[in-house]
Nucleic acid binder design. Structure first.
Lengths: 117, 117
DNA sequence: TGTCATGTGTATTAACTAGTACACACTTTG
DNA sequence: CAAAGTGTGTACTAGTTAATACACATGACA
C-alpha cells in the first residue's frame, strides 16, 4: 500500500550487502521485535509498526525518524505535543505554509534559527 | 483527567441558559451520538471522542476545532497530512518554534501571510 | 396528574493496534 | 554432512478505541 515496507527493505538490503549484521533477523532482534513481524512489515503484509518501533528502526538503518514516521503515516508525538500547547498559532502557521514552496519554508526556518524576532 | 469534558460541559451549560436546544440530549442527537455517551464524555468517564466527533462538537458549541482537539490530546488530521508531505522541513520548523514566544509565532504567521519570500 | 424531556448507570461490542509464538523450508558455512 | 542462520506462513492475543442499547430516576409543564 504505502511504500513504507518497500523503503525499509531496500534500505536494509543495501546495508546488508556490506555488513551481514543487517539480516532481517538480526535487525529485528536489535530493535526488539520478532523476525516474522519485521518480515511482514517489510512486505507490507501488516501496517507499519508503532511510533517507538519505527523510530528504533530508523536509528538502526540510519534514516531520519521524521521521514520514516511520515512514510508510516504518522507524525512524531513530540511535534504533536508542541502543536497541542498552542493549537491556534501552530494550526494557522502550518495551514499557511501548506502551499509555500520549499525554499520559503527554509527561509522561515533560517530566520527563526537566527532569532529574527 | 484532562479537562476536555469539564470544558465542553461548562460551555454547553452556558449556552443552555439562553437556549433550551443545548440540553445534553439535543446536542448529542444533533452531532449524532448517544446521549449516554456524551454524558460520559462530559464527566470524563470515557476518553475524548474521535476527531470527527470532536470537530462536530466544536462546531455545535462554537468552539475552535483545533483548540478542542488539543484538549482532546489530538492534532487535526489535515495538519498531520501537511507535515507528512515535507516531514524534515516541518519537523525542524516546529521544533525550532517550540520555545519561541507567542509574539514571535504571530510575527512569522504574519510574515508568511504577507508573502514575504 | 400524566407525559415528556433530562441526565446517567450498566452492559455490551466490532474493529483495530501492535504485536508474539512456533513451525517450516531453504541456504550458507565450518 | 551437520549445524547454524535465513526469511516466511499460520495461528493467536491482550489491550485500546469509539462507540451503542436500554433501563432508570428525576424534574418540568400543561
Amino acid at each position: 500500500m504505502t511504500h513504507f515496507g518497500k523503503s525499509i527493505r531496500t534500505r536494509r538490503e543495501h546495508l546488508h550487502l556490506e555488513d551481514k549484521r543487517f539480516s532481517l533477523r538480526q535487525v529485528a532482534m536489535r530493535i526488539g521485535i520478532e523476525p516474522a513481524y519485521l518480515s511482514k512489515i517489510e512486505r507490507g503484509e501488516v501496517s507499519p509498526p508503532s511510533e517507538a518501533t519505527t523510530v528504533r528502526l530508523a536509528h538502526e538503518l540510519g534514516e531520519d525518524p521524521d521521514v520514516l514516521l511520515a512514510l508510516a503515516g504518522k507524525v512524531s508525538g513530540d511535534l504533536q505535543n508542541i502543536i497541542r500547547k498552542r493549537p491556534k498559532l501552530f494550526a494557522e502557521l502550518i495551514r499557511q505554509l501548506k502551499e509555500a514552496p520549499d525554499h520559503a519554508l527554509l527561509h522561515v526556518v533560517r530566520e527563526v534559527r537566527d532569532g529574527e524576532w
